[in-house]
Simulated scan of single mutants.
Amino acid sequence: MRDQRLKDIVPFVVSVESGSFTAAAERLYLTSSAVSKSIARLEERLGARLLERTTRTLQLTDAGNAYYQTCLRIMQELAEAEAILTAQRTIPSGRLRLAVPNTYGRLGVMPLLIPFCQQHPEIELSVTFSDRFIDLFDEGIDVAVRIGGPTDLPASLGSRQMGRERMVFCATPDYLDRAGRPTSENELLQHRAILYERTDGSTKPWLFTTADGHPHWRSVPYCMALGDVDAQVQALCGGLGVAQMPSWLIREPLSREALEIILPEQQPEGLMLSLVWPRRKQLLPKVDSLLAALGELTIR
C-alpha cells in the first residue's frame, strides 16, 4: 500500500502541472489510459474526487488542491533529502544566503565571514543586512543571526543560543570631567541622557539591576533620542551625554579609552544572540561549515 501511494502521487502531480492526461503521459512515458487509471485508483482509495475532467482541461477540486499541495511538499522534501545525501560527498559549494542585523552584522559577523570565504572559495555568499524580522522560508535564507526575537521557534527551525548582551552605562571622559562621575542610580538619572528611539516614537527606558539581582526598567528624561544605534555612538563619542549601550557596540571606543564605563556594577543582561536555520538544510556542507564558522560569535 505504501509503495502504491508513492507510485500514484507522481502521475497526479504531473497531470495537474501538464493540464491533461495525454500531456502527463508523454512526460512520464506512459499511456494516457495508465495515467487515467492511476488517478482513478488514487481517488477511490482517498474516497474523494481530486480532478474535474472536461474534454480539454483538468481542474482541481477543493480536496484535490489540498492534496496537491501536500504532494508537492512531499516531493520537495524527498528531493532535498537526496540533495543533502549527495552533497555530503562534496566540498562546501554553491550559493549560501545569510541574514544578519545591520550593525552587529558589520561589527560582529563580518570579521568571521572574511576568513570563511577565503577558506571556502566555492561558496557564493549573499548577506542581507537588516534589523527587521526575516522569515527564513519566505525569503530563502539558509542561516540567520538574530539579536532578540521569538524563542518559541517551530520544529522546522534549528537554533543555537550564543549568549546575551551585556548592557553598560558610558560617556566620554571629557563629559564626565565636566558633569561629574555618578556613583549611584539616582545620580546617573540627573545626567544628560542619550536614548534610543523606537519606530513607534517611544524611547527605550534604562535597565537596572536591584541589589537582589532582579532587573527593573526606568523611564528617564533625555537630551537626545535617536532611532539609530550608530548615531547614538557618535553622539556619545561627541561628549553630548550618557547612554546605556550593549558592550559589543562600543568595544572599539572603549578599547581606545574614548568612552568610559559608569557604574560598573550595573551591567544587566540584554537581548539574546542566536543562530537560526531551517533544519532540513543543516546537513548541507555549505550550511554546516557556516554554522561552524559563526560558532565563534560573541556578544559580550
Rank of each mutant, 00 (worst) to 15 (best):
I84R: 13
G94E: 12
N186V: 11
I299M: 12
P285K: 03
F129Y: 15
E265V: 05
T298F: 10
L271S: 07
L107R: 09
V242S: 03
L254S: 01
F129K: 06
V13N: 05
Q59L: 13
R95H: 10
S274V: 04
L249T: 06
G108L: 13
L259K: 02
S247Q: 14
P246S: 07
A293M: 07
L273T: 04
A79D: 11
P268E: 12
G238W: 01
E260Y: 07
A63P: 02
Y29E: 14
W277Y: 15
S36Y: 01
E257P: 00
S156R: 14
T31P: 06
T90W: 00
L157Q: 01
Q266N: 05
S36L: 06
A144R: 06
Y68A: 01
I9E: 05
G47H: 02
S159Y: 09
D212E: 14
G105N: 08
T55S: 14
I84T: 11
D212S: 12
P111V: 15
L189K: 01
L275Q: 03
R218G: 03
L297G: 02
E44S: 10
V10F: 09
A25P: 04
A81T: 10
G148M: 08
R218I: 15
R160P: 09
D228K: 01
T90E: 12
L85Q: 15
H214F: 13
L42T: 00
A34Y: 00
P173V: 05
T90R: 12
S255Y: 04
P246W: 08
C170D: 00
D3Q: 15
E80K: 05
G19T: 03
T31R: 11
P92A: 08
E52V: 14
C117M: 15
L291A: 09
Q282R: 12
R97S: 06
S93M: 15
A34K: 00
P264K: 09
D3K: 15
A225G: 10
L249Y: 04
V233I: 12
I147F: 03
R53N: 06
P154S: 13
L275D: 03
L125C: 03
T172R: 04
L290K: 07
E124K: 08
V168Y: 02
L291G: 01
S156H: 05
T151R: 13
E26Y: 07
P154V: 12
S93Y: 04
A231Q: 14
D135A: 00
L294I: 14
V229P: 00
L275G: 05
I141E: 00
G140R: 10
E296I: 08
M162I: 11
T199Y: 09
M272I: 10
L297Y: 03
E77V: 05
G180H: 01
R198M: 08
I194G: 02
P264Q: 02
T55D: 14
E80W: 02
S156N: 06
L112K: 01
Q190G: 04
I114G: 07
E17K: 08
R49H: 06
R166T: 15
L294Y: 05
G163R: 06
Q234F: 07
S247K: 13
F116E: 09
V127A: 04
S202C: 01
I194L: 13
G105Q: 13
A225H: 09
I84E: 10
I74N: 00
S38G: 03
M75S: 08
Q161R: 11
T57H: 04
A87S: 11
R178A: 12
M110F: 12
I123V: 15
Q244K: 04
C170P: 00
C170A: 15
A293H: 05
T203W: 10
G238S: 14
E260G: 01
L188G: 01
L188R: 01
R5E: 06
